[in-house]
């Protein structure tokens, strides 16, 4: 009984769980890693995982990309069947999130280059040690 519900839970929800686990991997990287570049990589994983989460929301079993086929619905608009097309909204939202992710990544890398230039290293403990001296 338990096993069955567990299996059905895994089958029906595994996409969300996978995204959430990836989010946690990214977050661990951002908080725990000593190398600042690895933190940035963790940040990238975090943001990509959120994109995966949203895209999972928009999926419909058996549906196609959200582009109305020419010809079929041109004359009669009522003929468009919503189950044939996946939800376009999460795609739109995630296009924004991708852009934000790229932008943050670029700024983080720029600051990282500056840190390397000032401190000569991007290992956090080495930087902190050099500050104490």
């Amino acid at each position: 009984m338990y096993m069955e519900s567990l299996i059905s839970f895994i089958v029906t929800e595994y996409n969300y769980s996978a995204a959430l686990i990836l989010i946690m991997i990214g977050m661990y990287g951002m908080i725990a890693k000593n190398n600042l570049l690895k933190k940035v990589i963790g940040m990238s994983i975090f943001q990509s995982a959120i994109i995966l989460f949203y895209i999972s929301i928009g999926y419909k079993g058996g549906a196609s990309i959200p582009i109305i086929k020419h010809g079929s619905g041109m004359a009669d608009h009522a003929a468009i069947d919503p189950t044939l097309y996946v939800n376009p909204l999460p795609h739109v939202l995630m296009l924004t999130a991708i852009v934000v992710g790229v932008a943050t990544l670029g700024v983080a890398l720029a600051i990282l280059q500056k840190i390397y230039r000032v401190h000569g290293t991007i290992e956090e403990d080495e930087i902190l040690e050099s500050l104490k001296e």
Partner: peptide
């Protein structure tokens, strides 16, 4: 002074904050 280092920390924690917000909105949306 050490503005670069503190800004980098802000980027990391700020991104965690913003991403949490985004994830929360995702939960509401779903």
């Amino acid at each position: 002074g050490l503005a670069y280092l503190s800004t980098f920390k802000y980027i990391i924690i700020g991104t965690i904050g913003a991403s949490f917000y985004l994830l929360g909105v995702g939960y509401l949306y779903i």
